[in-house]
Design a binder for these strands. Structure first.
Lengths: 216, 216
DNA sequence: GTCTATAATTAGATAGAC
DNA sequence: GTCTATCTAATTATAGAC
């Protein structure tokens, strides 16, 4: 294996990294809204305020750009969850779980792209799905499943198989935000409002871990 | 308003209705997999085993075909739920709710197109979204919200605002099936298998209405 | 009703100037 | 690095034969 070359002074223009970053951000929005095939590199370029061939300069193909966009959203998810978990060392299992689930609801509200892009790829179930699961979803699943198993064993959650708990949480947390336009028309609530996000986190936690119910 | 013309004997060929139906079925699958823009009339035609211009003969535009496909999936949903409800006259409120939610989980498993097509349209939030909500989603929402309100008032569900309960149910029920390809890779469970569907209905009902939890 | 042929548009990617 | 110009392929919809 050749040694890595020492970093050259000014190998790239100072604008290059910023441009690349703007393209990835635009791509994440458009891929999640329109799916891989539906998003066009022209529109991604326009949103990043560059010309379309520049996308092909920075990313060898549309697919490479998609990989970069997915890497970015999962890096953000992991930052949010591990950042929260590190602030909770020594806190008991149930409280930790509730706060992590709350953090997950906040993340789903702020970044509906995450759930959208997974849904997009599941529809067609091609080779991008293999990459997505093995590179990004499986680590999240294994950590979450371990947490859920502990909660069931401790009696904090009903005796429901882990996979079902995972998909109930994965559905219950983001759906209000993913279906935001429907929610606004149907209920009058705006799922972008902080108090609605807070109320949704409360709701998910109440249903999972139980809350007082009125007597009939 | 002119009177409707009496139905003519053999105004259309006997094959026409069957062809139209095959096109709508193919369109529903492809629109839900690929979204409105992503699905091509050529592919819809190929799946229905007709040529592409015949799609434009039966439906004046791609959008008319989309309306017909959405009408079809909501008609199936309403058939399934009202059919189940009619078999439950006189049954108590809690049992009725559990059986209707079970029926909804079965429907989500058999027809992941429903949740997919709503998700598709929410992403772009255009005029098709207006039509979808006002023609089809609102009636379902109002009936469901009334049921959920009754369950909260009777103490069968925690005191959580209706809109949040609706989106928790709307997320928890179909997500395992909508993310089927991910679920198979991640958990080894096939969400098309009847016993997995049954277990998911059990899981959703346990979490909503409570079930025994082990003591720590 | 259903077909073949085609018009008009738009996509991703490449060539080459600066 | 970033641009303009362009190639090839694929899209919806229409024209017109049968």
């Amino acid at each position: 294996m050749a040694q890595a070359a020492p970093p050259k002074a000014r190998a790239t223009r100072p604008s290059a990294n910023a441009t690349r970053e703007r393209i990835v951000v635009a791509a994440l929005d458009l891929f999640s809204e329109l799916s891989f095939d539906g998003a066009t590199t022209r529109e991604i370029a326009a949103r990043a305020e560059v010309t379309q061939p520049l996308v092909n300069y920075h990313f060898s193909s549309k697919e490479e750009l998609w990989f970069a966009a997915v890497d970015r959203i999962f890096a953000q998810l992991n930052d949010a969850l591990t950042g929260r978990a590190e602030g909770l060392r020594g806190v008991d299992e149930l409280t930790t779980a509730k706060l992590l689930i709350r953090e997950f609801v906040y993340f789903c509200a702020a970044h509906p792209q995450l759930h959208r892009i997974i849904t997009q790829e599941c529809k067609t179930d091609g080779p991008r799905m293999d990459w997505l699961v093995e590179h990004h979803v499986r680590p999240v699943y294994e950590q979450t499943a371990a947490m859920l198993d502990g909660l069931v064993a401790a009696g904090h959650l009903p005796r429901v198989p882990t996979a079902h708990l995972y998909y109930i949480l994965t559905g219950a947390a983001p759906t209000m935000f993913v279906l935001g336009p429907e929610c606004r028309r149907l209920t009058g609530l705006d799922p972008r409002a902080p108090e609605v996000i807070e109320a949704h986190a409360d709701a998910v936690i109440s249903l999972l871990f139980g809350a007082e119910r009125t007597e009939p």
